[in-house]
Every structure is written in C-alpha cells, then in structure tokens.
Design a protein around this nucleic acid. Structure first.
Lengths: 193, 193
DNA sequence: AAAAAGCATTGAACTATGTCAACAAATTGA
DNA sequence: TCAATTTGTTGACATAGTTCAATGCTTTTT
C-alpha cells in the first residue's frame, strides 16, 4: 500500500477508532486516481459518481451564474472531500461543476462501494454523520458572514483560515468564493487599511 | 400516546423503515414540551441541551450582529428540527439564540438520550446522516442564492418555497433571513414589477 | 378604551460594491 | 524564446442596497 495513503488513514483515525482491518477494508474500496490540472471531474447535468478524498492538489466545485461567470462553492485541498453530495447520493443530474486546479491525487469511492462499506462497518455511518455536522456548521458560518460582514472582513477571515488555499488559487476564484468581484478584491488588497 | 405525535411518526417513517417498537422507543425518549410564544429556548453562551422536532408553531435561530441587530439563521415550523447543532453535539457555549415566535409544541431529545437511541437503533444513525445531507444541500443553495441573486429574486424564491412561513412571521425577520434590511424588503414588495 | 410597543412604509442622502474598459504583469505552451 | 492566454490592477461611472428619521398602522398590554 502506497505511503501517501497515510494522510487518509490519519484522517479516518483522527476522531474514530477503526481497527486496522476496517481501515484496510475501507482503503481497498477506494480507487487511487491521479488527475492532471485543469481537468473537469464533473459537469452540469452529469451524475456525480464519486466521493473523493484529496491526497494531494487542489480542486474546486462551482456553479455557473446566468451571466456565465463561476460562483465557487468550495475549494478542496489535502484532507478535504470533493463531491457533489446531492447528485452523488440521489443519483440526480448535477447542478454544479467540479474541476482540478493543480494536478490532484484522489481516493475515489463509488456509491455502491460506499453503501457496502456502511453495511459492513456500521461505525462508518457515525463518522459520516459527524463529518456532515462539521461541514454544515461551516456553511452556516459562511452564510452568516456573507450576510453580516463586509467583503473586506470576509477576505481577511479567509486568509486567516485558509492561508494555504490563498497561495495556491488565482485571486479571482477567491473573490468568487467570497461573493465579490475580482476587481473589488483587488481594490481591497490595494487598500492600506 | 398523544395523537399529535403522529406528525413525528410520519416524519420518521417517511424514508426509513423503523419497526413499530423502534418508533415507540424513540418516542419514549422525546420529551413533549409546550412553550409560550416569545420564549428564549437558548441564549448566547449557553450550552444547547436539546434537539427539538417541531410538532406545532414556529421558532427562529439567529445570531446577534455587532450592531445589535438579529441575523436570522433559520425558521423552524411543523416537521422541522430546531437546535444549535454545533453547541448540542460538542457541548460548547452557543453562539446563537433560539426563540419561539408562536406558541410551540416540541419533542425534545437530550444528547444522552440521543446517544442511547443511536446505540440501540443503528439504523437511526443513517437517518440522521441523510437528514444532515439534505440540510447541507439547503445551506449550499442558500449561500449560492445570497452570492448570485438579488434581494428581490431571493425574496420571490422565498415566498415560493415557504409561503407558510411568510404568513406567520414578521416581515423584518424575513428580511434578515434573506440578508437585506426591513426597509429594502418593504420597497421590494411595493415594487410593481 | 387608552397607552405602549412593535411593525411596515416612505423619502432623501449615502455607501459598498459592481460594471466596463484599458492595460500591465505573470504564466503557459509551442 | 516569443506569442498567447490567463491573471491582476486601476479609473470612471453606475447601482443595489443601507441608513436615518418621520409617520401611520397593528397588536399587545393595562
């Protein structure tokens, strides 16, 4: 087994106590994929057939605004998950796109394999539930920030929270994630205060 | 057992197949509470000790903005859940408030009882996971709307989606939920187009 | 039934952010 | 290494949404 998988084992072990056999079983179902940069992993209308754990690299999920511009929903770098939850679980056409920014290394799980894993390792259900809870709280806070904080404040919070993402993705994508235009973000950064 | 609990049984049965005994067990752990209107169920700094299913009435969860105004995170009416997920599960001081608007009837579950239920009915873990997934998709879409749609568009989508809530809560709270001021919402409504 | 409190509307002035267009800088790719 | 593309910056102007203050309308309380 590849050493790079360690990051995933650590992720799973972090707040859960899976046995070594369980970890092996989980890993055996995950397909290791290497994807070049600027590759589409999911397009609008397709059914998302993966839930991917990021071993390496960085990717984005985004919607297309009526006017054609991208609205970034999330960045996913090392130790994050990348998927369209809705499309994947309901097996419905996706409303979003997923694409790599850098070359990525992923551990991909199919719905069928996920269901099987959940059958054989009930504890995994719990892990997913806890993960979703954290995820949900994140979205709540982001929504709140979008309502209650200025573009500048959101930007400052972002670089605090994700300095790492900040350095690796083009600025205009971060602007989009923050809900402001690229031009406005540029002005915020130029601002002395 | 009170007939009004039926709405809860239906909710559980909806996409899950719990046996009658399981349903009874679940219900036995849930405390039926009647709460007057305008009552605080959770204040900032408190630890949220309930996860409540709404049998009747309507309540809100909200944050307090620096300037003292409320920022509505969510409305919860019949068949919705009302809780501060983060505070409840991590047992940490809450950053939000929860309060009734109308008189409410709730089925409240404590963390201890929830854990016990999850132990004895593993299927329940799955139900929660699916619930969280839906919940999460909702927040994603709301965030997206806040970034990509105008106040007017969000308002129109809201009355489409929650006509029922619309009629029962003061307009300024809906404005807050939508991320606009009460005055601006009033102008949107006055607008002929 | 009167007083008080909360809620909705409106006007006028203001501001954070968007738009468009031009250009400069950096990165990619042949 | 040069051309092409992508990314970031800046200016001038436009606008969606805010703020504040005044006013009247409901609902609640006494």
């Amino acid at each position: 087994m590849d050493k790079s998988f360690l990051i995933f084992r650590e992720h799973l072990a972090h707040s859960n106590d899976f046995s070594s056999e369980e970890l092996d079983l989980i890993l055996s179902k995950m397909e290791h994929k290497r994807v070049p940069k600027k590759t589409h992993l999911l397009s609008i209308g397709e059914i998302c057939d993966f839930e991917a754990f990021v071993l390496k690299g960085i990717g984005i999920s985004y919607f297309i605004h009526e006017n054609g511009s991208k609205v970034i929903l999330s960045f996913a770098s090392e130790s994050w998950w990348l998927s369209d939850i809705e499309s994947f679980h309901r097996q419905t056409p996706s409303k979003m796109c997923i694409e790599t920014i850098e070359e990525m290394e992923l551990l991909c799980l199919s719905l069928k394999d996920k269901e099987e894993l959940l059958q054989s390792i009930p504890k995994l259900e719990r892990m997913y539930r806890l993960m979703l809870q954290n995820h949900l709280v994140n979205y709540q806070q982001r929504l709140l920030a979008n309502i209650a904080h200025s573009g500048k404040e959101r930007y400052q919070a972002f670089i605090e929270k994700y300095p790492n993402v900040m350095k690796r993705v083009p600025q205009h994508l971060i602007a989009s994630y923050l809900g402001i235009t690229a031009e406005f973000l540029s002005r915020i950064r130029a601002d002395k205060n």
